[in-house]
Design a protein around this nucleic acid. Structure first.
Lengths: 253, 253
DNA sequence: CGTGAATTTGATTTAGCTCAAGCGGGGTGG
DNA sequence: CCACCCCGCTTGAGCTAAATCAAATTCACG
């Protein structure tokens, strides 16, 4: 599982075993449970095993901005390792099971294996890259494009960990309010955009399951360029909207 | 200069000399010159010596989102080291002088001195932290608060590198359009907000020089919490709006 | 002194927010 | 097992903050 995360960047040989030796108690949580509260320090990092989590910030006026989603395989929250107070909170979205890994284990692993340190650094850079794209989303895209763009991102990320079914369907345990808070919109606006996307036969969304009916069109109309995700560069080819190539089968665990 | 950047995080002894040995050709650029174009690869990293730069993304419809400012002492763009294609562009704002450091030098330094690798990792985390706050800004704050918040950030960052004068004045080489593009607003809106801030005797802004007349009030009304910048934790004290304590004098280089 | 860019100002439009009310479905407790 | 209830979704009707459009003015700079 962790290996899956790290493979996305680069690493080799015994580094993996070091990763696999990272042991943590795995716990299950209900939906909408705070895993990390803003402004606290923690001794354990969170590895999402199943389900989704989100990072968010609350404003004085009570509004919320979600600043990232974590899906299975994501190590959440790197900031922990620094001993800094976290500047944001983390909460589960649907029910989720999470592995709590003591930070000193990870730090030790990083010290011994520079390759690993490198991998974590790269992970942080990818994080920042995604954040930049979210900023573009919130700042300069129209609501319709925003939603479409975010769905493309989650589709690709879920696909990269083998959680998108052959029928292009995956679990999206988000309420429309969650989506709104991720993009700086209103639940009402999100609702209307989703209607439109359904109407245009681009997606199906019900009961926490999203089916993307036409990923290529969705990517095109939202101006989605997957390069910012820095997913495994399987083909050195290039940009390639990636819509197809179901060659990369997935082992569902 | 680099030492200044790195001191912000942590590091010790001979690491510094390693950093100081990083040599690069220092060049001066005019305003609004692209240093890095989107989607290219580069062999050199950029260290801002003087002036400002910004990272930005262009959208198909021609609009621009600025995703970060780089001020003197900032190492721009970490992403370079990965060999990835950059997913955004970098341009000077005012005239600027920049030191171009070959990436292999930095990578070598990182390999030899794990402490340095750690420092770069932390820098990436701070980067992400700032991006999260920008996302909050764009997504959930009202224009007035947004502008005030951004000014607070730049005030603090400039202060942390000793570029804010005793009269709370510093160089802000941004057009109102630049500000707008950083926050997802319109130049017109930015202009009106600035008027209001002037009217309320909070700032003075003309000719690229900003004077913050009442930083504490500015921080309060914009809901600014400096912790996300993760600046040197001089006092382990705690949050402290920081408005004062001019104890930390600056050596202007 | 002239020129183009940046700022300022006003008028108008509209996209997205707010407010509000009805609907549906899944889970709980009686 | 059924009814209820809460939460999330949906829909409609304004409303308003910010975008847009446009033009005047100032400023920086050659």
């Amino acid at each position: 599982m962790i290996a899956k995360l790290e493979r996305l960047t680069e690493l080799s040989g015994p580094d993996r075993t070091a990763l696999e030796n990272l042991s943590g108690s795995t716990q299950s949580f209900a939906a909408n449970v705070d895993l990390i509260r803003q402004g606290t320090r923690h001794e354990t990092a969170l590895l999402i095993v199943e389900g989704w989590a989100c990072r968010y910030k609350l404003l004085p006026d009570g509004s919320r901005q979600i600043v990232g989603f974590a899906i299975p395989g994501d190590l959440c929250e790197a900031q922990i390792f620094t001993g800094w107070r976290t500047d944001h909170a983390v909460a589960t979205l649907g029910a989720a099971t999470v592995s709590m890994i003591p930070i000193n284990q990870i730090l030790a692993a990083m010290d011994q294996r520079p390759r690993l340190a490198r991998a974590f650094w790269l992970a942080a850079l990818v994080d920042a890259s995604v954040l930049r794209e979210w900023l573009v989303n919130a700042g300069r895209r129209a609501p319709y494009d925003q939603v479409a763009h975010l769905l493309c991102e989650m589709w690709l990320r879920m696909k990269s960990v083998g959680l998108v079914s052959a029928s292009s369907r995956f679990s999206l345990p988000l309420t429309q309010s969650d989506l709104a808070d991720a993009m700086g919109l209103t639940p009402v606006t999100v609702n209307r955009v989703l209607q439109k996307l359904r109407q245009e036969a681009l997606i199906t969304l019900a009961g926490g399951k999203l089916t993307v009916l036409d990923i290529d069109r969705l990517m095109t109309l939202s101006g989605f360029d997957p390069s910012y995700l820095h997913l495994l560069q399987r083909q050195p080819a290039g940009v390639r909207p990636a819509g197809v190539s179901s060659r990369n089968a997935e082992k569902p665990s």
